[in-house]
């Protein structure tokens, strides 16, 4: 299998609400020589249904993996939730023969079979492991040395460690390294690995918004000019809710929430329009002015 050709697994949240992430990721990956093949007939990774039925989650995830196996290509996802689920189910079904047979019994009804021959990687993992830091750095034409930003990894790119095993969940480094490759400074702040709260929305908005507020407070404390995310749910949680949180708790942030490929794209010389900055809820024009002026 060619290491830089992937089936792209979009998942549900991105086409539903976060096209800016997809647009910027596709632009950046194309320029870095990563070829994306559209994945036909995929379904929800299964994660949102795990609380209701683990069996249903396993079947849905295995169905996706079986479809990818038919194509003979590894999967790239932009959503850590999808990546985590597909990785976890791949590992469980490869190790547990009885369970694999049970799930394959279901897939057989639809003419599919899980064999365990493909791997799944999140965008960030592809960037660091397959594209490589050197290639990314050499693609940076306009280093963002004028920017000081903060990162938010989100939970499912890191935990549970046993199944993801790609970075240290207590002190993750990959996103920081990727941010610094753009020339920007990545600031440390309190409770960096704390959950955004998104999965609790719908069950308790109150808890979810308080968690997002904590995060924005901590990011503001270190004067970060932007918060960089790599997850559609974390992005929705902060970008869509920032104004609501400001009103609700009488706070003032004005912190733009950028997808990592938007930051990288800027450093690679792409325009804010190309990178769908206009789709962001929190206005990023101040930051963009700083980038333009800093580059002069």
């Amino acid at each position: 299998m060619s290491s830089n050709k992937y089936l792209i697994f979009l998942g549900c949240a991105i086409p539903y609400r976060v096209s800016s992430y997809e647009i910027s990721a596709r632009k950046v990956l194309a320029k870095l020589g990563v070829e994306l093949v559209e994945m036909p007939e995929f379904n929800c990774c299964g994660l949102p249904l795990d609380p209701v039925s683990h069996e249903m989650m396993l079947i849905l995830a295995a169905r996706n993996l079986a479809l990818a196996e038919q194509q003979g290509l590894n999967i790239i996802t932009l959503c850590p939730g999808c990546a985590g689920t597909l990785k976890k189910v791949n590992k469980i079904l490869k190790e547990d023969k009885a369970l694999r047979e049970q799930i394959n019994g279901h897939l057989k009804e639809a003419g599919l079979e899980f064999k365990g021959t493909v791997t799944t990687k999140h965008l960030m993992q592809v960037l660091i492991e397959d594209v490589g830091l050197e290639k990314i750095k050499s693609a940076v034409l306009k280093p963002l040395t004028m920017l000081k930003v903060a990162e938010h990894n989100g939970c499912h790119i890191l935990r549970p460690k046993e199944y993801i095993g790609f970075d240290d969940p207590e002190d993750p480094q990959t996103l920081k390294t990727l941010i610094e490759a753009t020339g920007a400074t990545c600031l440390d702040y309190m409770d960096e690995t704390e959950c955004c709260g998104a999965p609790s929305v719908g069950v308790s908005d109150k808890v979810a918004l308080q968690l997002a507020r904590d995060k924005l407070n901590h990011v503001k404390m270190v004067d970060a000019q932007a918060l960089i995310t790599i997850c559609p749910f974390c992005h929705i949680m902060y970008d869509t809710n920032e104004l609501r949180i400001e009103k609700m708790f009488n706070e003032a942030y004005g912190i733009p929430i950028l997808h990592y490929p938007q930051l990288l794209g800027l450093a690679m010389g792409m325009s804010p329009e190309e990178l769908a900055f206009n789709e962001l809820r929190v206005n990023a024009s101040k930051l963009l002015t700083q980038v333009t002026e800093g580059a002069k």
Binding site: I23, E38, N43, E55, M56, I59, L60, H106, L112
Partner: peptide
């Protein structure tokens, strides 16, 4: 937006795979 068409799901195939799920 310059994005490829959204892949269509296959509800018939999904329903077949989920046959017999307890829930």
């Amino acid at each position: 937006q310059g994005l490829p068409p959204l892949p269509k799901g296959n509800p018939a195939s999904i329903s077949k795979s989920l046959k017999g799920v307890k829930f």
